[in-house]
């Protein structure tokens, strides 16, 4: 059973067609990674899923329901959330306010405070800094805050765009473990990563995107062994 199905997608920005004939699936409870070089269109793909790009052709269905017509601001209601690559927090709001913005539409106070507590348990450093303005956080803290904000709606499918970009290697490991934990708790994940090795180690399956098209799709374990992949993406 697939939680997200993308079929024959063409999308881009205005007149610039970036993605062509893309089909991608994310299994219910699955952990799918997308890897590819800079400018391959990975961010564009996630933005298209979140109705932030122009879609020319194709369908995107979430739990069997077409979501191409749903506005970005309403997607978090149906159990989808997105951690963008850059500017993933509001710098002039405090950490607490950022998290509060994460569940802006939630009416029940109990739900908000229990989710807040869960995020604070997962990332204790955020609790320590909860009154601090988010613009002054370190890079790692920002990424945790960004993931934390996305968790405030308790999403079933989480789109993550290079959450570990710019982090120290030790932190990358830690954040990956946190992300993997989200998956073991039952959330489906679609992760875009530059760090192909890590991504393939943690993910179940992976797509390789190049020049706006899918180049390869396989189980992560197989890709990790594939010669070509090692040559292109894993040799550092």
């Amino acid at each position: 059973m697939n939680i997200l199905e993308i079929r024959d997608l063409d999308s881009g920005y205005g007149k610039a067609l970036i993605l062509q004939d893309l089909s991608i699936d994310v299994k219910e409870g699955g952990f799918t990674a997308i890897i590819g070089p800079n400018g391959a269109g990975k961010t564009t793909l996630l933005r298209t899923i979140f109705s932030l790009c122009d879609l020319y052709k194709g369908t995107i269905s979430f739990r069997g329901k077409d979501i191409t017509r749903i506005k970005a601001e309403n997607l978090s209601d149906i159990g989808l959330n997105y951690v963008p690559q850059e500017e993933s927090i509001f710098p002039s709001l405090t950490v607490f306010e950022n998290l509060r913005m994460g569940s802006v539409k939630e009416k029940s106070r109990e739900k908000i405070s229990s989710r807040l507590e869960r995020v604070y348990n997962r990332f204790p450093v955020l609790e320590k800094r909860h009154g601090q303005s988010a613009g002054t956080l370190s890079g790692g803290e920002r990424q945790m805050l960004a993931v934390g904000c996305a968790l405030m709606t308790d999403p079933d499918l989480l789109l993550l765009d290079e959450p570990t970009a710019g982090l120290a290697p030790t932190l990358v490991e830690g954040l990956f473990q946190d992300i993997a934990k989200l998956n073991t708790e039952g959330r489906s994940l679609l992760l875009v990563e530059q760090n192909a090795k890590m991504a393939l180690q943690y993910a179940h399956e992976a797509y390789i995107l190049e020049g706006g098209r899918i180049k390869q799709h396989d189980d992560a374990a197989n890709l990790l062994k594939s010669e070509e992949i090692i040559k292109h993406y894993l040799s550092v």
Partner: peptide
């Protein structure tokens, strides 16, 4: 808060459901 968030980053605000 909503006004400050929208001022900071309108497209992130949309993502957050604002």
């Amino acid at each position: 808060r909503l006004m400050r968030a929208t001022s900071d980053n309108p497209s992130l605000s949309l993502i957050r459901g604002i």
